[in-house]
Design a protein around this nucleic acid. Sequence first.
DNA 1: TTTCGGCTTTGACACAGATCAACCAGAGGC
DNA 2: GCCTCTGGTTGATCTGTGTCAAAGCCGAAA
Lengths: 246, 246
Amino acid sequence: MTLAEYKLTDCADCPIRHRAVCARCESDELEALDAIKYYRSYEAGQAVIWSGDQMNFVGSVVSGIATLTQTMEDGRTQMVGLLLPSDFVGRPGRAGAAYNVVATTDVVMCCFRKKPFEDLLAKTPHIAHRLLEMTLDELDAAREWMLVLGRKTAREKIASLLSIIARRDASLSTDPSSGAVSFDLKLTREAMADYLGLTLETVSRQISALKKAGVISLEGKRHVTVPDMRRLIEEAGDDSDGGLVG
Amino acid sequence: MTLAEYKLTDCADCPIRHRAVCARCESDELEALDAIKYYRSYEAGQAVIWSGDQMNFVGSVVSGIATLTQTMEDGRTQMVGLLLPSDFVGRPGRAGAAYNVVATTDVVMCCFRKKPFEDLLAKTPHIAHRLLEMTLDELDAAREWMLVLGRKTAREKIASLLSIIARRDASLSTDPSSGAVSFDLKLTREAMADYLGLTLETVSRQISALKKAGVISLEGKRHVTVPDMRRLIEEAGDDSDGGLVG
DNA sequence: TTTCGGCTTTGACACAGATCAACCAGAGGC
DNA sequence: GCCTCTGGTTGATCTGTGTCAAAGCCGAAA
């Protein structure tokens, strides 16, 4: 892949993911990246990596959605991050994976063997810098989510999740006249529950409640339309614009 | 301050905080750090920075404890990080603070004006690398805390918090014969509640319950003794050793 | 077409933790 | 000595969410 192609794809499958950075990239750096790069696909439901396993690559999601979860021995699980296209996976400098990574839809990842990637990182400061930026973003997202988990009601939690997905989902469409936003919910009620620290029954009930209140409307079980985003954000109890997903 | 002094203090007040890194430091880098460094003290209860404010420095805690909190308009607050000595504060590359930082005890911080620090960061790759490491640690801690907030019971939450403090608190003392660990709790019940997503009454009740069960014992309200750490960890429902605080 | 299994909804009820309220203990200040 | 203030404990009650159970929906397989 050439420099031009990296630009073309807006670096969705480059671990540095950001056009501004790549514009600065030297082409020999890109060639170095190419040399250690490979693609992998995972089917919906398939595990990318288990917590504790040796993780010999890093990479980023090209398409599909994956989840980052932690589980207790008794089976209680908490999602700690949602990986959308262009999100980075892996921790340079760490031997093992800290979480389970599971594909919830079919997923394609762009991977780099870890050792060579780390070598590259040591040699090219602005890749390291970009990675720091991304990690800080994830940290912000994680901390925002701590507020959601610790202090919001079930209804606010649902509204928060829908806001975040609406904001990030690339496939969202906005009706220019009404301003209505709609998108496909690519998570099951159970996955939402795991993200929000709720049970799937409560998720279902609160979605029904938001529907009844006219904050959202549904076509089928998974296609959501938000007639007025401000209303949804208000339901989320949002102090701010919110962050992105981890 | 000289290289020797940085080593002497184990870099507690160096933003890079780790002896192994500093051993690699070139002395001119340290001089560059010295040139932009200054100290600041805060009294217990005083705010270091408010969310949204311009933040023109980064730094690390030398002594005392500070908290990172987020607040909703209606006053609900959630602590998103606990800053113990040697923890880093601030986000290179970001203009404003994302959280409130408040000193809970008297605090001394070692600060660096942000711009010069960022310049230094750009020039010295291994400082950047160390910062990435630290940010990844914080991310792990935040995600571990998401499991606590989302899925643990009040009792498990308290046990988790006590485990973490016992593990990290430098002033902890271990009785070599019995293996009992004891430490001073430097947070009010309310601060604990804000960290755990509970009310202060529930915190109080659960601490009493753990005391009655013999998992911990108290002298006064704040000095905690843990006769058997394994027991406490078991109460925390801990799948793993756990992380550190953010 | 029927059947099946995964996902979702809905209801009845239980319970952990919130809320409201009273009281207690220790540290200053006077 | 007493007063007051902050932080902590404990009790009674309420409620949001979990739990258990039943039934509905819909796409895929047979």
